[in-house]
């Protein structure tokens, strides 16, 4: 068996912000209502975080849990940790109605870094980055495709579907072309 390959094999670009494909990253889409009693235990067991509030993302080292919708969470972890996390969720949730699926391979993940990383994203997404706080997960549109993003380190993490990874990478790299800073 081969090593898992991310969509672009770790593509990189340097402009006034840096763009880097990371991954493959482990991701689980967990659907359950917020009032399910076992939910905190399941999330804790899978990624070690608490249950994020509305539009929040809880980050613990390499693992995170983001609020995607009133009944959907995105669990992030090392690629190899998914199978164990799925087992842990199943065990914690027991008979409670939920759905947990591996979506690691369905996604591409980018790090947009640098002091002006927000200016690259402001060219693609109808999001007010001045009011997007640390720890907020925003699902939105990057030009013509769906994306989710949050602040992390000196920049942002951007998640999109795998099939449009090249498109999103090209968008980000073009947006970061030196000389096109917004301020």
């Amino acid at each position: 068996m081969s090593e898992p390959m991310s969509a672009l094999g770790g593509a990189k670009s340097e402009g006034f912000a840096s763009v880097r494909e990371i991954g493959p990253l482990g991701m689980i889409s967990l659907r359950a209502k917020a009032d399910v009693k076992a939910l905190p235990k399941a999330i804790k067991a899978a990624v070690g975080t608490g249950v994020p509030g509305l539009r929040r993302i809880e980050i613990e080292g390499e693992r995170a849990c983001g609020w995607m919708s009133p009944d959907e969470y995105l669990l992030v972890m090392p690629y190899g940790a998914v199978a164990g996390a799925l087992e842990a969720i199943a065990k914690a949730m027991g008979g409670a109605h939920h759905l947990a699926v591996d979506v690691s391979d369905a996604r591409a993940v980018f790090r947009v870094g640098g002091a002006k990383a927000d200016q690259v994203l402001a060219k693609l997404a109808p999001v007010d980055f001045a009011t997007l706080g640390t720890g907020e997960l925003r699902r939105t549109r990057a030009a013509q495709v769906a994306a989710a993003l949050w602040k992390e380190g000196d920049g942002f993490t951007v998640v999109c579907f795998r099939s449009v990874a090249r498109y999103v990478f090209d968008l980000l790299a073009t947006g970061a072309t030196p000389g096109s800073e917004l301020s």
Partner: peptide
């Protein structure tokens, strides 16, 4: 009303 985002028409 489900996530509190003030979304522009292109997101809807």
């Amino acid at each position: 009303p489900c996530c509190g985002v003030k979304a522009e028409e292109t997101e809807l």
